[in-house]
C-alpha cells in the first residue's frame, strides 16, 4: 500500500460524493415537491442500494469500460439513497406552522423552498451526505476490479500473496479514513443542528 493509493481512494470517494450531492439533493427536492414522483424516486434509489456493489460496478463497466469513471458512477449510484431520502425527509419534516406562516406572509413556492424549507432541512441533508461518505469509503474498495485502483488494489494483491500485515494495515487505513471523515462531518453536523434545533434553550 502506498500513499498514492490512499490519495487515489480518497479522490474517488470525494469526487463520487460531490456528484452524489449534485444529483441526490435535486432528486430529493423533486421527490418532495411532486408528490406523485415521490414514491417512484424513493423506491428507485432504494432498489439501487440492494444491488451488490461488485455487480453494480460490473454492469457499469460493460457500458463504460474499466477506469475511474466507472468507479465514480458506481459509487454515486450506490450512495444516492441516503442523500435523496434525507433531503426529502428533511423537507417534509419542516414544521407545518412554519410552512403556513411562510405562505400566509406572501412567499411563493420557490422562494419558500429556497429561503425557508431548504435552510431548515440542511442538517438532515448533511446527515445523508455523511452516510454517503462512509458508504463510499467502503464500496470504493471494489474499484480495483474495474480498474480504479485505490486501497482495494493493495488489499487484493496482499490477499493473493498471503501478505497478512499489508491486509491488516490497509484495512486499518480504510477504517481510519471512514472514522476520520465521519468524525469531522459529525462535528460539523452538530454545529448545524445546535444552531436551530428547537429542543434546547
Amino acid at each position: 500500500m502506498s500513499w498514492s493509493m490512499v490519495m487515489e481512494h480518497l479522490f474517488m470517494v470525494l469526487l463520487a460524493v460531490l456528484f452524489t450531492i449534485a444529483l441526490g439533493v435535486p432528486l430529493g427536492v423533486c421527490a418532495y415537491c411532486f408528490k406523485p414522483l415521490r414514491r417512484v424516486v424513493l423506491w428507485s434509489v432504494e432498489i439501487l442500494q440492494t444491488i451488490p456493489a461488485m455487480a453494480l460496478l460490473g454492469i457499469i463497466m460493460v457500458f463504460l469500460g474499466a477506469g475511474k469513471a466507472t468507479v465514480v458512477i458506481g459509487l454515486l449510484l450506490y450512495a444516492l439513497m441516503p442523500v435523496v431520502q434525507n433531503t426529502c425527509l428533511g423537507l417534509t419534516e419542516v414544521d407545518p406552522g412554519v410552512r403556513e406562516v411562510a405562505r400566509g406572509m406572501g412567499m411563493m413556492r420557490f422562494y419558500r423552498l429556497l429561503h425557508v424549507e431548504m435552510p431548515i432541512a440542511i442538517p438532515y441533508i448533511f446527515t445523508g451526505i455523511r452516510i454517503a461518505v462512509v458508504i463510499s469509503v467502503g464500496v470504493a474498495v471494489f474499484a480495483t476490479f474495474v480498474g480504479g485502483g485505490g486501497i482495494g488494489r493493495a488489499i487484493y494483491q496482499a490477499i493473493r500473496v498471503h501478505d497478512v500485515p499489508t491486509i491488516i494495515s490497509s484495512t486499518f487505513t480504510l477504517m481510519l479514513m471512514a472514522i476520520g471523515l465521519d468524525t469531522v462531518m459529525a462535528l460539523a453536523e452538530k454545529r448545524l443542528y445546535s444552531r436551530f434545533s428547537p429542543a434546547e434553550k
Binding site: D95, P96, G97, V98, R99, E100, V101, A102, R103, G104, M105, G106, V116, P119, I120, I122, R195, F196, S197, P198
Partner: peptide, 16 residues
C-alpha cells in the same frame, strides 16, 4: 398577503 399580517398559534418563527 404582504399587506396583511398573519399570526398563528404554532407561532412558526423561522428557526434558522
Amino acid at each position: 398577503r404582504c399587506s396583511i399580517g398573519y399570526v398563528i398559534q404554532q407561532i412558526g418563527l423561522f428557526p434558522h
